[in-house]
Design a protein around this nucleic acid. Structure first.
Length: 342
DNA sequence: AACCGTTCCAACCGCTTCGTC
DNA sequence: CGACGAAGCGGTTGGAACGGT
């Protein structure tokens, strides 16, 4: 596939935009919409490539952009989402609707990353640096990674569900198979945050329950590979999560998890999965956090906020009983607008 | 005032993904 | 199904602004 020529074309201007150029682009887009970016510059009277116009519009001229200093809440949202999603700036930006991915990326690189480093945290993993080496609190770290892995897989699955629902909507087969009510539910009233259990449900319709569970976790482990993946799911980890979420105590074994499934099977097809979902993703539901004491994490955001004021004791970052880091992350992801900021 | 190092961010580059034919 | 163009995305860079000496 040949690379499309962009700004290497003779006569096209590069570099900073002038107010006149901004005005031309703004006026054109407001009147006609951007349409094809490649075709826009000559129509708008600009000596720029389409790509440059698109960037200027999306990063600067768009009317719904909030500019200026990031609030503490925005900072927290970015950090929490970065812990989950890694450097997926557009995904992070989607939870901060008035900020652009470029702005968030810049802010991360110039401010937040440095602060995490100052606090002794690895900005890539959000773990304390000595912990990242695996020399202490391995159980907490494993569980942290475990939760990140799970949530990351969930977000990936949501994206896939959206894609699939769009494909379904465009196929005539879909209209034959789905009755009006379910189609409407799927296409028009999708909640702001779908969940991985819907993937599970979809898979369940096509195969046996056991296979569905296996494929779900296979997806979490491999097929839905996450850029933030730190640890792989092992059977025991999966079973442990299920055990915890279902309120079980004792050793985590795959057999026990299976038992949980079978008990719940009597409650209905998706009874267990929905419960599992609720336990994992509902920030107001404390079950998973109280059931799994080892999943209690301090809110290093508390310490982070202190950075705006007096000095910060690095050790305070991982002090106990300051809240629940992952609970706050999940609340970011699950809140109606995707973020409590807005 | 001049110089130098650092910070910040708009813009660019090039790879990836998506949609169309 | 593969080729192709368009758009999306994340990493990187250039240079203006700023602060310290």
């Amino acid at each position: 596939m040949g690379r499309s020529p962009c700004c290497d074309k003779e006569g096209l201007k590069k570099g900073p935009w002038t107010p006149e150029e901004d005005q031309k682009l703004l006026a054109y887009v407001q009147e006609h919409g951007h349409g094809s970016w490649r075709a826009l510059p000559p129509k708008a009277g600009l000596q720029r490539c389409g790509k440059s116009c698109r960037l200027r519009w999306t990063n600067y001229l768009r009317p719904d952009i909030k500019r200026g200093k990031f609030s503490l809440q925005e900072e927290q949202t970015i950090i929490q989402l970065h812990a989950l999603l890694g450097n997926r700036w557009s995904a992070i930006a989607s939870h901060l609707p008035k900020r652009t991915d470029n702005e968030i990326k810049n802010y991360w690189n110039t401010h937040l990353k440095k602060r995490l480093v100052k606090m002794g945290l690895d900005p890539a993993t959000h773990k304390p640096k000595n912990h990242a080496l695996g020399c202490s609190q391995p159980k907490q770290i494993a569980n942290l990674s475990h939760m990140a892995q799970w949530e990351s897989a969930r977000l990936e699955a949501e994206a896939r569900i959206v894609r699939e629902s769009k494909q379904l909507a465009s196929s005539s087969l879909a209209s034959q198979l789905m009755n009006a009510a379910s189609a409407s539910a799927l296409l028009s009233s999708r909640p702001p945050c779908l969940d991985i259990l819907k993937v599970w449900q979809g898979t369940w319709m096509r195969s046996s329950r056991k296979d569905a569970a296996a494929s779900l976790f296979a997806a979490a482990n491999g097929n839905l590979e996450s850029p933030t993946s730190i640890l792989n799911f092992s059977d025991n980890m999966v079973a442990g999560l299920i055990n915890d979420s279902a309120g079980y105590r004792g050793p985590c074994t795959a057999e026990k998890a299976n038992g949980g499934y079978q008990e719940e099977q009597n409650k209905g097809m998706m009874g267990n999965s929905m419960e599992l979902h609720d336990h994992i993703t509902d920030p107001n539901c404390s079950t998973i956090y109280t059931a799994a004491d080892s999943l209690r994490f301090p809110s290093f955001m508390d310490g982070f906020g202190d950075l705006h004021g007096s000095g910060q004791d690095d050790n305070a970052v991982f002090d106990d009983n300051k809240g629940n880091y992952w609970s706050s992350i999940l609340s970011v992801v699950n809140s109606p607008m995707g973020s409590p900021v807005f």
